[in-house]
Structures are given as C-alpha cells and as structure tokens.
C-alpha cells in the first residue's frame, strides 16, 4: 500500500509552547484515517502543520508528501499540489464573492495541473450540481465568503470547496461539529462520493456518528502531541466507553 503522506518525528510549537512532540503518522493512498483525541491534544495543530499555517513552527521532523519533504513549502504550493484542509473555524471574508473566490481557486488548481480553466458557465454548472447535492442554500454561493454564514453553512461550504477542488489529500478538522442531522448526512455523503480509491482522508472528530457514515479504515488516537494508538473501527466503541485515559502516552 503506497503512502501519500508520511509524518516523521514531527515536532512543532506555537509561540513558545511545544505542541507536537515527535508525532508519527502515515496516510495511505485511497484510505480514510480518523484522528480522535482530547481537547488541546494538538489535532488542529497537526492539520495546520501539514498545510503550512503561519502559527505553527516546525522544529524537527519531516512531512513527506508524494515523496517530497514539504516543510518549507509555501501554503499555496501545498494546496495546488492537492492538500486540502477544511478548517475547524472557517474565517469570514467580507466583500469577496463566494462563487468568484471558488472559481479563482478551482482555476488556479486546474492551471497547476495543466488542465484548461473553466469558463464562468462551465464552472457555474459544476458548482450548482454540487450545491444541490449538498443540500446547500443556493443563495450562499452569491454571498460574501462565509460572512454571516451559520456554523453548519460554513461547514457545508468547506465541503463544497473540497468537491470542486478535487484534492488528493483531504483533511477535515471537526467537519461534523455543529451540524444538524440532515447536514451531517449530506456532508458525509459528499465525502463518501469523493472516495475514489486514490484520494486519502484525514478526519479529525470527537464523535462516532460521522465515522458510522464514512467508515474509516484506521483510527488514530492523538494525545499530548503524539499518536499513541492506531487501530481499526472497533477502537471507536472502546473510546466511547472508556474515554482517552486508558491510552497512555508513549
């Protein structure tokens, strides 16, 4: 099984605080990996480290993506190469039209891949189909990016972007938090539809419900800046029963 992303002994800090403390994790091509772990363990920090967020300073270790260490790459390079992060709290950008933004992003990626750019009509057609599939309010695509969106609307908008950008590695940071039952189903179906045997997923969550829908291949437990345990979906049940205390730090 080929590894699309290999995280080796990753150490990272935010400010002066060590958050990731020698973390190891491999993402397999075409597989769904879930990460669970207590609040403040470093899950979001890990996802930020992978996409090159300015808050996170990698002090040691490697992030190998498609065979290349990307630790020093610009965020937009990583994105164009196919790494997508659905943010835990997507930021609002007033004045920037949602559809216009997404078309710019989609065409930047297509250009990077040597594909022809989509014209306005082609783009709109594709986007409308995805919007309908996600059960998203069509008016949201003509609003300012995330501005005044409800929590659930923001999350659906992240999934819309994922569907349109067709990334190779999808990191979902608590995509299920704040979703109502219907939204959770719609979002999960959107994710499932994106599984194509090649694309890999890293799903950060606190709840088993989304995992019931998207059926992860692996569950990793992240605690105090390290992956302390890896198992199959059976781990979910154990975690729900016993919490994280039974998983000791390495």
């Amino acid at each position: 099984m080929s590894k699309v992303l290999e995280i080796k002994d990753l150490k990272a800090k935010i400010g002066n605080k060590d958050i990731l403390k020698g973390l190891n994790l491999d993402l397999e091509e075409g597989k769904v990996h879930a990460i669970m772990g207590p609040n403040g363990a470093g899950k979001s920090t890990l996802s930020k480290a992978i996409v090159g967020h300015y808050d996170v300073e990698v002090t040691d270790g490697e992030i190998i993506y498609k065979g290349k260490n990307i630790v020093d790459e610009e965020p937009e390079e990583r994105a164009l190469d196919g790494i997508f992060l659905s943010f835990q709290n997507p930021v609002e950008i007033p004045g920037v039209n949602n559809a216009y933004f997404l078309r710019t992003a989609v065409n930047a990626r297509r250009k990077h891949l040597g594909k022809p750019e989509l014209n306005a009509a082609e783009f709109l057609r594709a986007m409308k189909a995805d919007v309908a599939e996600l059960g998203m309010k069509p008016e949201l695509i003509n609003r300012s990016l995330n501005e005044g969106f409800s929590g659930g609307e923001k999350k659906r908008n992240e999934i819309l972007q994922m569907m349109m950008l067709e990334p190779d590695v999808v990191i979902l940071d608590e995509i299920d938090s704040g979703l109502d039952i219907d939204a959770l189903r719609a979002v999960s179906e959107g994710i499932n539809k994106m599984k194509d045997g090649k694309r890999s997923f890293l799903v950060i969550t606190h709840y088993s419900r989304i995992l019931d829908y998207i059926e992860p291949d692996y569950i990793h437990v992240l605690k105090d800046g390290q992956i302390v345990h890896t198992g199959g979906s059976e781990l979910v049940e154990q975690l729900e029963k016993e919490g994280y205390s039974s998983f000791e730090e390495k």
Partner: peptide
C-alpha cells in the same frame, strides 16, 4: 483571511487583491 485563501491555492498577492477588490 490571507491564509484561508492561500490554502485554497491562491497566491498571497492575488489573495490581497481579491480582498481589496471586494472592498
């Protein structure tokens, strides 16, 4: 905001001008 746009593959200068044009 800039990071969000860059994470979607839009380079920093384009990201700024996108926000400015919106404004």
């Amino acid at each position: 905001q800039l990071f969000y746009l860059r994470q979607r593959g839009i380079n920093e200068e384009d990201a700024v001008s996108m926000i400015v044009h919106g404004f």
